Simulated assay, not measured.
Amino acid sequence: MEFCPECKSMMFPSGGSLKCRKCGYVKGKQADSEALVSVASREKRDVTVLEGNVDQGLPTTSVRCEECGNNIAYWWLRQLRSADESETRFFKCTKCGCTWREYD
C-alpha cells in the first residue's frame, strides 16, 4: 500500500500506475516494485431457510397462505443482508408447508 506524497491519501491502481483519488497525483510503476491487487468476487449462494423438521416449536401467526388458503403459519427471522439492514421475516404454512418471505 502506498500513500500520496502530496496529500498523504491512499494511492489506487489506475492503468498500470498508481493514482491518488483525492488530489489526482499519478505515480508511474517502478520496475523493481511488485504491486499487489486484491480482486474480490461474490459467488451466488443458496440460503437454507430451515433444515429438516425444525419448524416444531416455532411461534405461529395469523397470515394467509397463497397456496392453500390456510390462515396459520410458523414464522422466524433471519439476517440475510448486511447487519445495518433489517432482518427478513419467513413464514411456513402449518398445513401445506409452503414457505415464503416478507421484507420490511
Results as ranks from 00 to 15, higher is better:
L77D: 09
P59T: 07
V63Q: 10
V47W: 08
Q79F: 03
A73G: 01
C7E: 00
V39K: 13
W75Q: 11
C7H: 01
G28S: 10
I72C: 00
E87I: 07
V54I: 01
C96P: 11
G16P: 03
C68I: 05
C65F: 01
K29L: 12
C4A: 04
D55M: 08
C96A: 11
S38F: 06
A35T: 14
C93M: 02
V39G: 07
E102G: 10
C65V: 05
C20E: 05
S38E: 09
S17D: 09
R101K: 15
T88G: 04
M10K: 15
Y74L: 01
G57M: 00
N53C: 09
D84F: 08
Q56M: 10
N53I: 06
K27T: 04
C4L: 03
S38D: 04
Q30S: 15
W75Y: 15
P59K: 13
L77E: 10
C20K: 03
Y103M: 15
K44G: 06
Y74I: 02
K92L: 10
R89P: 02
C65R: 02
S41H: 15
M1G: 14
E67L: 12
K95M: 10
I72H: 00
E85R: 14
L58K: 11
V39W: 03
G52M: 03
S38R: 09
G52Q: 02
E43T: 07
T61I: 04
Y25P: 01
E43I: 05
L18H: 02
G16C: 06
C7L: 01
L18F: 08
R42Y: 13
V47N: 09
D32H: 12
V47C: 07
W100M: 11
S33G: 05
V26D: 05
N71P: 01
A35D: 12
A35S: 11
L50C: 06
G24C: 07
R89Y: 01
V37G: 01
D84W: 06
Y103P: 03
C65D: 05
K44M: 11
